[in-house]
Structures are given as C-alpha cells and as structure tokens.
Design a protein around this nucleic acid. Sequence first.
DNA 1: TACTACACGTGACGC
DNA 2: TGCGTCACGTGTAGT
Lengths: 204, 204
Amino acid sequence: MDFIDAVLDGLGDDFCGQPGPPEVPAETRYKSKNLDAERRRRNKLNAKLLALRALVPNITKMSKESTLTDAISYIKQLQQQVLELQIELSKIPDEDGEKQGSASSTETMAPLETVQLQGKVELNPIGKTKYHLEMIYKNITGAFTRLLEALHRMGAEVTTVSSVAFSGFSETVFCLEVKDEGVIHMTELRQQLLAIVLNLNCTI
Amino acid sequence: MDFIDAVLDGLGDDFCGQPGPPEVPAETRYKSKNLDAERRRRNKLNAKLLALRALVPNITKMSKESTLTDAISYIKQLQQQVLELQIELSKIPDEDGEKQGSASSTETMAPLETVQLQGKVELNPIGKTKYHLEMIYKNITGAFTRLLEALHRMGAEVTTVSSVAFSGFSETVFCLEVKDEGVIHMTELRQQLLAIVLNLNCTI
DNA sequence: TACTACACGTGACGC
DNA sequence: TGCGTCACGTGTAGT
C-alpha cells in the first residue's frame, strides 16, 4: 500500500502549510517522473477516442467499448460500400477517357463544393422494423434509382412507394422494412440518402 | 479532495481496527472485488482495439495511439471516397442495358432456380403524351431499378408511381409522360418491360 | 541512465 | 446491494 503512503506524504506536504510546488525535502520524492507523462498519454488517447466517436454516425452508447465496436462495424460498412460502388462504376464502360486508375483509393478528390440546395429527408420509425421515409429532391434522371440502390444496399426493403413530380422536384414516400435491428443503420441510411439528395444538383 | 478523505477513512478503518460495514473477518484484506471485472474490461477493450487495427490497411506504428489515429484518418478517407464514388457514379447517365456482358464484376446474383412465373405488363395511353402502366412481377432485388432504367432509356418520364409488395410479388402502377410521339416506342418499351419482368429470375 | 508505451490494481461513480 | 465503467498512480519492460 505504498500508494496510500504516497498520498499521505503528499497530503502531509500540503497539510504542513507548505504550498510550494513539490517542496522536495531531502530526496525529491519524485515517486514517479512518469506521472504527468502518463497523464498526457491518457489525455491523448481519450481525445483520439473521442474524435473517433465523432466520426462515426451511429453511436449506440457513450462508452469506450461501444465506440470501438461501432467504429469497427462502421469501417466494415464503409469498406463494403466502397467496394460495391467501385464494382458498380466498373460496370459502366467509362465514357470519356478520364484518368482511371480504378486501382481504387488514393484520393481522386473531386472538386465538389457549393452544394447548396433544397432537399428533404425524413426517416421515422413506424414499427419495430418498419420505417416511414419521405424525401423531396430535385428531379434529375437517375436520382430515384440511386435512392433505391442506397436503400437496398442498406438492407431496407421497400414495401410501398408513392411519388409525385412537380415543377422539377419530386416528393417520394417510402415504407421500409428492415430485417433485424435496423435502428443502428438508420442514421447512416439517412445520411446517405441526404448525400444523394443534396448532391443531385451539383453533378451533371 | 474527497478522494484523499476516502483514503484516509479507509486507512482509518484499517488503523483503528474499525471494520465498518464490510466487516471482513480479521484479515482477508479485501483485495478489491472488481479485479476480475477490470481485467475482463481491459481484455475486451484491447481486443476491440486490435480488431480495429486489423481493419486498417496502413498502420504506421504498433501503438494504441497510432491505431486510433490511423483509424480516424482511414475512416475520413473512406467517407470521402464513398462520396466521390457516388458523385462519379451519378455523373454517368448509365446508358448501358443492351447486351454487352462486359466484365461486370462478379455479380453476387444468386443462382435462382428457374421458376417459370407469371408477369403482367399493361400499357395504355391516357392522353396525347401520357400513359398508364401497370405491372405485376416477382419481387426480386433490383427489379424495380431495372424497370426504371428501361423507362428512362426509352425516354419515358415517370410522373407518379405507386407500388405495393405482397407475398413475393409487386404490383406497380406508373404514370408516364413522353416528349414527342412516343407511340412508336411504346410497343418496344412494353416488350422490354415484359422481358425484364419475365426474365427476372434467369437473366444476369 | 532517461524516455516511451503498456498493464496492472485500486477507489469512485452510476445504475 | 453488486456490476460495469472509468481515471488514477505505479511498476516495468523495450529502446
């Protein structure tokens, strides 16, 4: 229990009215020089963990373990998504030459900016595995298809759909059904749909 | 400093021989009950951290901090990549459709035992440039998407759509609008739709 | 020798 | 009450 001893020592210093820094009498008492180093290490680690959690859209619990768990599943999901997108993209005979490493990854970085527009995505649960999805988006060819693909990709089955187009826009209402606990992916799904809806106008 | 107080209290208990509530018989030295729990927690956490590192392709250092750092940057990269791919994919009006097997990836497509099945395609004009299209088809993932692609390919604009799924089938009603004299293409459109509806289980 | 990164046991807090 | 989670200070290997 030297731990308690250390505390007692520290308290003893304080208690004796000697506020001076460490007030090292005799042999510097540096029980551990490591102390603040370890503190910094912990802080950095926790900060990183926090940053990680900030990146993951669907966090279930505010806990270190769940943070890691969610991050893991999120990465898996992203990886698969990238793969599917690349496959989808490779199916299409590439039009204008373009570069085309197709080697994947390595940042091809599209210009993309000035995304600014009206669009709406509302996703509400209406049952254990059922969801009500309403969207309003600019009416562009292929938009609806991409939305359907996103839904399918996320494992959401479309039971009914009702859509109406008016003056360049479309309002679509889906009734979705998911297999198992779909709640976790729902925020992610919503994000993807929103990305599609919002990016509709700045592309093409 | 309730912390120190607590320590002092604890020490006081030990020192004064005042066992208090726990009342540990003589010795036994209550070695902290949650020792095992803490161990398990650490193990789980480390396991998760390890799993995370396994997912990230380029790990710089074998350290917890770098693991988190790399994971963070990796997630960012994946997110951006997904966004770019989606944009890239949305740029292409996807004009394929005809034959051309083209490599086209390994299509997860299940074998799908040859099921001869019922399908229905009714296409009737309800105006100069408007059509009413009703279809019944086996409910297979991607079917709806292919139908939409066919419609778009043939220059038919979907104004409204209503669909309902029931016991493995879907009934979908479209209201279509075509630019100019679409009558010519309508029979062809109907043929394509029928092909899709009938071939849902044996093509691709 | 000093610095870094880690695992450990422990008290405290929340359910 | 116990159980899970956390932060803390410390010991200790690897460089």
